[in-house]
Design a protein around this nucleic acid. Structure first.
Lengths: 243, 243
DNA sequence: GAGTGGTCTAGACCACGAG
DNA sequence: TCGTGGTCTAGACCACTCA
């Protein structure tokens, strides 16, 4: 039961987590590490692959492998009892937005329940903590509902769009969130600054009015292992009893 | 920009998804595949690793590599508006339970907010679809609250425990769900029948009474790519207005 | 015992980064 | 130019499965 690359992984992981290999530091070169642990180069590289997928190290072609600084997990908070939860450290985030106009097509059609060609406004939110991407959100609103530019967003989840709609009298009746763990596409991986082998937490959020029409569709991507999502709700059975 | 193993992955993936390689079938041996795609054995094996992490194939030492039959995604449904959502195909699930008594320790203490040594009842739910594990849930209840054995569970999420508590007059006031995408531990991977490199969706659910005491703690594990979680809620702002 | 996958290795060759 | 990581390869050796 001697899987050598696993031993190397455990060894390096504990050295990183204990601080023996400080965050931001460059690791010894792969050749040196292979010699240290008495394994071949391919075996050592396999071990580094695991650490990279776990987000513990970052590899730079031609420069070396570096210990990734630990990041406070990003928290996405939702649910009817959301106010009672304190998202920690969200003030450390810098949020960027890109706004594009496009026409509905492809996978957007069944999701947003609009006919092909419907003018949409897409906002892409990218939040960073100390320069490291922490979340990627794509928010879609039908053009006819959109109120134009908003202020610099504080929230990485497109809350400014929801607030703007609310201020303009549009009422959201319900929100559905579909959550999935999967691997990112190549583009998503690049924007989130993760590897394709590292999992992402995907939240597909749909906000509807009282007639069931979709007003806002949001695709939230969070890097796995560096993010969490919280859902706080009051209990269904009590609600039923109250009725 | 010629990454040969990526081409093999794309090729095999499309052959699987198109049905050219039928579900359940054995793939040609790794040597044959390597010859077919004109790549070396290590390169081909790297491609197979990706497909295995994606859950598309299953490897058996000494027997061969097999196309994994597609499985209807398991859906976990939660939220105060949960009744309006129809979980598809949950009737196909077979659920097994194992009940153990233990004393609170380690990571359970801060989560369940009980002192060390508190007697607990642990129920482990393993659901399967056509023999393939689909979900793993660990549900913890303080011994003093537990009502003993329940019927054969229909739900893989420990709903029978909640129902039992409700029937015995215990009222849950709120539920918090913390969702994370990560890699499984070795034990979790084995029980869920996935690889350590495949992501899992983890839901840490805490149900509290009106005094904020934790009544039930549940750790739900779903295999990424073959599962999803739905959260349906009414909108916060409307609730605020109504108050 | 024949066939299969699992692990590990040495080494070739290319591409990138920095001086 | 030199050191670094990225990719690919051939092949040794072991472990498992099944006839």
């Amino acid at each position: 039961m001697a899987v050598r690359y696993t031993h190397v992984v455990d060894e390096l992981r504990s050295r990183i987590k204990s601080g023996a290999l400080p965050a931001g530091d460059r690791l010894p070169s792969e050749g040196e590490l292979a010699a240290t642990y008495r394994v071949g180069l391919p075996t050592l590289r396999r071990a580094l692959d695991v650490l990279q997928a776990e987000g513990l190290i970052e590899k730079f072609h031609g420069r070396g492998n570096f210990v990734r600084p630990p990041i406070r997990p990003v928290t996405y908070v939702s649910g009817c009892d959301a106010q009672t939860v304190q998202p920690a450290g969200s003030s450390l985030l810098k949020v960027d937005v890109r706004v594009t106009e496009l026409e509905a097509q492809g996978g957007l059609l069944p999701w947003l329940q609009v006919p092909a060609g419907t003018p949409l406004v897409e906002r892409v939110y990218l939040s960073k903590q100390a320069g490291v991407p922490c979340s990627l959100a794509r928010v879609y609103v039908p053009r006819v509902l959109d109120g134009g530019a908003t202020e610099v967003p504080q929230s990485p989840w497109g809350d400014d769009v929801l607030a703007q709609l609310f201020a303009r009298g549009v009422r959201l009746a319900a929100t559905r969130e579909r959550t999935v763990a999967r691997f990112p596409t190549a583009e998503e991986a690049e924007e989130l600054h993760v590897v394709t082998r590292a999992p992402v937490l995907v939240i597909e959020r749909t906000s509807t009015d009282s007639d069931g029409r979709v007003l806002v569709g949001s695709l939230l991507l969070l890097p796995g292992g560096r993010a969490e999502a919280l859902f706080a709700t009051v209990d269904c059975r009590n609600l039923e009893e109250a009725r």
